[in-house]
Nucleic acid binder design. Sequence first.
DNA 1: CCCTATAAACACT
DNA 2: AGTGTTTATAGGG
Length: 499
Amino acid sequence: MAEASGSPSAAGAEAALDPEFPPQSRPRSCTWPLPRPELAGASAEPDPEPGGGAIESAPDKRLTLAQIYEWMVRSVPYFRDKGDSNSSAGWKNSIRHNLSLHSKFIKVHNEATGKSSWWMLNPEGGKSGKAPRRRAASMDNSSKLAKVRGKASKKKAAMQVASEPPADSPTSQYPKWPGSPSARSNEDSDVWTSIRPRTSSNASTISLGLSPILTEQDDLPDEELLPSLVYSSASSNVPPTVTEELELIDGLNLMSPSSSLLSAQQHTSSGLSHRTPSFSLQNQSTATQAPSFGSSLFNPVDISLHSSGGHFSGPQTLEALLTSNSPPPSDVMMTQVDPILPQSGGRLNSQTFLLLGDQSSKSKMSPVNLLRKPSEQQLDSVGTTALASALTMVTAPQNAAGLSTLKASSPAQSTQVVQLGALPPLSAATLTPFGGNQDRLPNDLDVDMYMENLECDVDYIINTDLMDGEGLDFNFEPIPSAPTYPSTSQASNHTWVPS
DNA sequence: CCCTATAAACACT
DNA sequence: AGTGTTTATAGGG
């Protein structure tokens, strides 16, 4: 392979993760065509819009590596072909690399099926700048030094345990919990309780004894992603330390057995909350720019936009794909909800988008987001109407990238189309839908509730209304402010200390 | 100079 | 074999 091509970058991830402060909307060195985030960010800065990252897309906000791969394949056109090939192409390697490298991603031990660990976004929002990992003790961390990372030494496992104690995690709080209590009817009672960020932990995940016993539905090809987690507050196997954490958590939200409630609370926002939801106003002007992705594996321009219905617009970097804002790959949506849905609908996506109105848009990093950020409309649509909400969740929990396909109600969308042409590579953003702001969205909340029910309806609606009439109006507009979610932003209450 | 992507080696499960 | 980490290198802004 030729490799070496430009590379998109993972700038997205950072942004996404940083709930508290987006450093600045600066695209670092991304390859994506970022028009000028400055605008967006500058004024308003990153908006907490939901985007669609692989991880974030997941109902639980956590995915295993394999699932991530799958997501990529489904969501990103470029990988569509490659997905099959088991060949672990370099892209998989890159994904792994990104996950390990960036602190924004945390690994949670998954005992379940012996599968690989869950990868989640670090609530703390580790920055993408490499993993801080151990908070470095002393060094001022000049850049380089810091980067040096501990390096090595992993030698035998001994290390893992030994060095782990630090727990420095400062104030890490888990703003948003990954799991929403959607106790799906699946029956399986999956219990997962622990999520610990490897945050600073140097050693990679220390295996806590958490018992995410997710039953893992791997059996179901489709349902993998579905939210089937039920947390049981009773963590029996958990080690003391962990237990404490869990308890804490429980107190916060997990307590509810049913968990329905949980979701409600769950939205606690993270630091972002303080940020106003108002978005920046990015104009489409930015969008106008064409995407000039480099040519990296990930951004091969070949991705046909039309392929099956529009894939996502273009995250930018791997990191972005993983984390945040990724464009909402049409497929993705399905995946989240139902991977199985197969492509039946490629179009479905579009519709979904319609419904959603595209809430994607994230923040800084993705050009796409910037472009597309219609802003208010999106929110409204999502938050406002139940329908919208439902739809959203159902189809696209957050991605909404449908985008172009839908028709552009707004200029921004049209723009997107253009972008589609050039798809970006995978970035961390892709993994996470929200730019780190997931808090704002009540994904779980609504989703849980509506998910099942809506599912059908949505389809139906889509088929019927959308297909038939052009007149379907999902009015996104009005609803001044009736956020579905209460306070999404309230401050983060949970303080979960990672330890 | 910093950042990212990619490749590859290595370690662990 | 798959997953994770880490190092090294190439390329772009």
